[in-house]
């Protein structure tokens, strides 16, 4: 259960969520399009708007959406890299930024695998040094045990021990991602946040990494937050799913339930657009994602929604409960057939 309103989150202490986002809003002031050269006029770009999300310990959550839906902004808020302009972002019931400012515990507990794994690794450092860096920074093992721990981490992510002496440029795309995962695991985190960690890879390399991530999550009891645009990846790796559109989570729930019978027309369209063997090509959604500078009135999906009715253009639906485990932001959710 990941999306609930505030009043419903008074669970016993053991079930206190790791992350909780309550009506989080992130507005960036950007230059007004078409302003004159010397004007300082800005407009607010609503990158996140009314985001509600609860992440429980040990769960695996996929955040899915197209480009411009706010996935990466959401991630920056979760990692405490940006201060949301509205709402509350909590980590173990305390504001994330407070947790981050009060010491290294947060950075140690919440590890990140970046989308551009190669770019996240210093090309002048050997793989061994790259993995040892977080070990030293967080003082995980005494110096004399460092090499052994590096070898252990390399083995855990399926790289040969001699990779420690090589440089990132000498590794393939799949191997570089494994190094990034090993580096993230070095601080012994309880939460692993991965931004498109398997995208842009060949299917066989992707399959190898997905199996690795799945075994890590299961064996180490990691909480996994996985940003992806691939519904097949989300359904393989994650128990829960949150589907975003234009800065809002429009549907959440158990992955199989949501993808098996989507309630939000956008989830249904995403589901239909995913390629499937020998199915006829789906009828595509008309148009493109509107500009976040100029959000449509009412429901933000109403301009492309095949089921839009008159009230959809007037009223902006919030994420609300739908059954015990699911939530949807739609005035006229689809009924399961």
């Amino acid at each position: 259960m990941i999306a609930q309103t505030l009043s419903e989150t008074k669970a016993p202490a053991s079930e206190q969520p790791i992350f909780e986002l309550i009506e989080v809003e992130q507005v960036f002031e950007v230059p007004k399009p078409g302003r004159s050269l010397f004007s300082r006029e800005t407009v607010g770009l609503r990158a996140l708007d009314g985001v509600r999300l609860t992440v429980r310990k040990g769960t695996s959550l996929a955040v899915v959406g197209e480009s411009g839906s706010g996935k990466s902004t959401l991630l920056r808020v979760l990692l405490g890299l940006d201060r949301p302009t509205g709402g509350r972002a909590l980590y173990h019931s305390k504001p994330i930024l407070e947790g981050r400012a009060s010491g290294i515990a947060f950075a140690r507990d919440v590890a990140m695998v970046y989308q551009d794994a190669r770019g996240s690794l210093d090309p002048r450092m050997t793989i061994g040094a790259l993995i040892a860096e977080p070990l030293r920074h967080f003082d995980i093992v005494p110096r004399q045990d460092e090499a052994a721990r590096v070898a252990q981490l390399l083995d855990r992510v399926g790289l040969p021990a001699d990779a420690a002496d090589r440089y990132p440029s000498g590794l393939s795309g799949g191997q570089v991602r494994r190094v990034a995962i090993a580096r993230a695991l070095a601080s012994e985190p309880s939460v692993l946040v991965a931004d498109e960690a398997v995208s842009g890879l060949d299917v066989s390399t992707q399959a190898q990494l997905l199996i690795l991530l799945q075994s890590l999550q299961r064996d180490m009891g990691l909480t996994l937050i996985f940003i992806t645009h691939d519904l097949g990846v989300a359904s393989f790796l994650c128990e829960e799913i949150a589907i975003m559109y234009l800065g809002r989570i429009v549907e959440t729930g158990p992955t199989d339930a949501v993808l098996g019978a989507p309630s939000h027309p956008y989830s249904a369209a995403l589901r239909a657009a995913a390629p499937q063997f020998f199915e006829p090509l789906s009828e595509p959604l008309p148009g493109e994602i509107p500009s976040p500078l100029n959000l449509p009135a009412g429901c933000r999906f109403s301009t492309r929604c095949p089921k839009a009715q008159d009230d959809c253009r007037l009223k902006d639906p919030q994420l609300g409960k739908l059954g015990p485990q699911r939530a949807v932001a739609c005035l006229h959710p689809l009924q399961p057939q």
């Binding site: 799949g174 066989s204 399959a207 097949g232 990846v233 359904s235 199989d256």
Partner: peptide, 21 residues
């Protein structure tokens, strides 16, 4: 067969990763 087995269909929970490169 190997290439096809790596394609993740929605709802698939089994995945066999091929060895090597």
């Amino acid at each position: 067969r190997q290439l096809k087995s790596c394609v993740l269909e929605i709802g698939a929970k089994d995945l066999v990763a091929p060895e090597g490169t």
